[in-house]
Design a protein around this nucleic acid. Structure first.
Lengths: 241, 241
DNA sequence: GTAATAGTGTCTATCAGACACTATGGT
DNA sequence: ACCATAGTGTCTGATAGACACTATTAC
């Protein structure tokens, strides 16, 4: 049985360590995810392939994993995330052809209105519509698997949390919020049940504004506590069983 | 703006990478977690301090993160886990005094009967009762935080999954299963509601045995699908709101 | 008034919790 | 017969979904 290495001897090989972020937003009636095109010139693997934004941890600049994820997000979108959650980690001997590597994956939600200024390397960044469990292009590394996990987590949580509130502008009507839920879930919800649920929690609070239109104006709301999501007691419709 | 390193130049500093496992089981009416005492001789940090079992990834032996976690579990308990789930990852410049490090944390559930043979280094391994959000001893690194997160995840999931079935021997009565739920939750459940829920799902199937006692014998059950946990449509009692 | 969407009230099926009841073996 | 625990039946309160109804603005 092999002993743990001594403190004086920490020079055994270590995995490459990266952070990747699945960044979602809604446009119209579609959920979309931000992807970057990998360089064709630096000789790295999966050249020209689309991938989740991410990269190596910079131990000089990143105080911790979350800060690293926030930095990736900022560099690609120029925006602060409405919501950032750790998704999990993927590590194996084979996921990167250069050797044993592990990535810490996050997922982020951006409000619809906020169009990313597409940071430093604009041409390489693009929104892709989500179709089923992923996107139509082949992704680098195991990013298809990570994206599928992010989508599963997002869709699960939408059933019993207020996460879609982070996909909507700061001020919104209840109908707009309901549309965000429906876009992520891929199915319609009952207006009455939706409003009852949302208003029964302390999720939103009314703003003293009305949204005009060719009809009765809608009350405008904002999040009561923009920092943290709300958990509902039950999912939207009984599943499983 | 700093560029990603070229493929030819991957020699920039990388974080130390470890895997840690919070291993739970029940004994009597108490939930307990397995801890190891850190060596006082190898000059490593937190000497003599209790810690979650874990250590550096061995890129020669560990095919992936999960295998690494299974290896740690096997080395400390000599047992295969009934359940092993990834919990999350913790990484920062300061959590390990030796430098930037990241750990991939898992949590595992062991059946009550299975007493660990306490692997290679028996004297250093010990079960500690869980009290509130952790244990009574000070833990190394940020392991108190990781343990608290594991407990929170476990207690949350117990509300709407069959996880406690992995804390119970292969064959069990419904009352024994209910006790496992109650031990983790820290509160009593209604017998009738509990049985209805458990039997309504395909969680368990009867074994052709009875458990004798100074009373009416109880039917013995086993898991229908020992591989995967079952998710219930609702938590045990409405929370939140 | 009409169109269109905002917002509310009512009914019902479902189900968890409560609790009392019956069942069955050991002594 | 009695005890202790296994296991079941019934009632009730809460609530999500369904759906119809009212409200309010632009035109």
């Amino acid at each position: 049985m092999k002993k743990q290495p001594l403190a004086a001897n920490l020079d055994f090989p270590r995995p490459y360590t990266t952070v990747d972020v699945a960044i979602f937003s809604v446009a119209g009636d579609a959920l979309r995810v931000l992807l970057v095109e990998r360089s064709r010139e630096d000789g790295g693997p999966f050249a020209g392939c689309w991938a989740l934004p991410g990269g190596f941890i910079d131990i000089e600049r990143d105080a911790d994993l979350r800060h690293c994820a926030l930095r990736k997000l900022r560099e690609k979108t120029g925006l602060a995330a409405g919501y950032l959650e750790q998704l999990g980690s993927w590590g194996s001997a084979t996921r990167d052809p250069r050797g044993w590597s592990a990535t810490h994956a996050y997922f982020a939600l951006l409000p619809a209105a906020a169009e990313p200024r597409a940071g430093a390397n604009a041409a390489e960044v693009c929104w892709f519509p989500v179709i089923g469990k992923g996107v139509r292009v082949r992704l680098a590394f195991d990013h298809a698997e990570i994206l599928a996990a992010a989508l599963e987590r997002l869709r699960n949580k939408v059933e019993y949390t207020s996460l879609p509130a982070f996909l909507v502008p700061k001020e919104f009507t209840l109908t707009e919020l309901q549309r965000a839920y429906e876009t992520v879930l891929g199915r319609r919800l009952e207006k009455s049940a939706f409003r009852t649920r949302v208003l029964a929690t302390r999720l939103v609070e009314p703003v003293d504004k009305l949204r005009a239109g060719p009809n009765r104006p809608a009350r405008v709301y904002r999040l009561s506590n923009p920092g943290a999501p709300v958990f509902f007691a039950r999912p939207f419709s009984p599943r499983g069983k």
